[in-house]
Amino acid sequence: MGQLDWEEMGRDEQIEFLMDEYGEEIKRLVFTYVKDHSAAEDLTQEIFITIYLKLDSFAGKSSIKTWIYSIAINKCKDHLKSWHVRKMTVQENIKEFLKSNRRGPHDEVLEKFESEWIVNHVLKLAMPYREVILLYYYKHLSIKEVGEILAISESTVKVRLHRGREKLRKSLEQMERGEVNG
């Protein structure tokens, strides 16, 4: 879509376009933070309301995608800091995650073991490592884009990617040796 097309659209058309273009992607991103499908849907709605309200303030200094991701990540972090979320237990999150993944035949579950193991361990990483790994590997953003979204330098992104990969490698080695540390 050209700049002229965007400027000719009304605000309602712009938000509709952004929801069509980024809605599912943002919902999946939000889920990686909150690990709850219902909360991810609610937060995604809140994010697009915020985008709608702030659409006029988009200065074009970054791409619309990085601007939307920044809003989404900030909303997720605010949500995770809230009293309600702090009161939820890790056990409840795990139960919900397991329920959402019991949908396929036994063979399908076995085939996905390695992929699910990686996802589970990425989701267990501390937030600074988790978010750069998710944005870089799962959302296929460049190191520069990840830095813009998280408001950190490219070198910090690289360091966090390296440390996150090291933590995952150590977890994999422990699993291969039969050590289980949760």
Rank of each mutant, 00 (worst) to 15 (best):
R163M: 10
Y137P: 12
V146E: 07
D42K: 05
V132P: 08
T66P: 07
R86N: 12
D20Q: 06
W67I: 00
G2I: 00
E131P: 12
K61R: 07
K144F: 10
W67R: 02
H79P: 04
I51V: 08
R102F: 15
E13W: 01
E131L: 14
V34F: 04
A72P: 01
L134Q: 03
E111G: 12
K61L: 05
L110H: 10
G178W: 09
K95T: 14
M127P: 09
S142H: 03
Q3V: 06
H84T: 11
L4D: 10
N74R: 07
K61C: 01
E116S: 13
T50F: 04
V90D: 13
K124D: 13
E148Y: 12
T156N: 07
S115M: 04
I152E: 01
L43G: 00
E8K: 11
F31S: 02
I15L: 09
D56A: 08
F48M: 00
E25Q: 00
R130Q: 11
E154D: 15
H140C: 10
Q3F: 08
I64W: 03
A59K: 06
D107E: 15
F31P: 03
W67V: 06
D42E: 06
H84C: 12
Q174D: 08
P128C: 09
F31T: 01
K170C: 08
G2K: 07
S115P: 02
E7L: 14
E108R: 13
V109I: 15
D5H: 06
L123N: 11
G104H: 14
I26P: 05
F113I: 13
K54F: 03
G147W: 06
F97V: 12
H37P: 00
M88S: 11
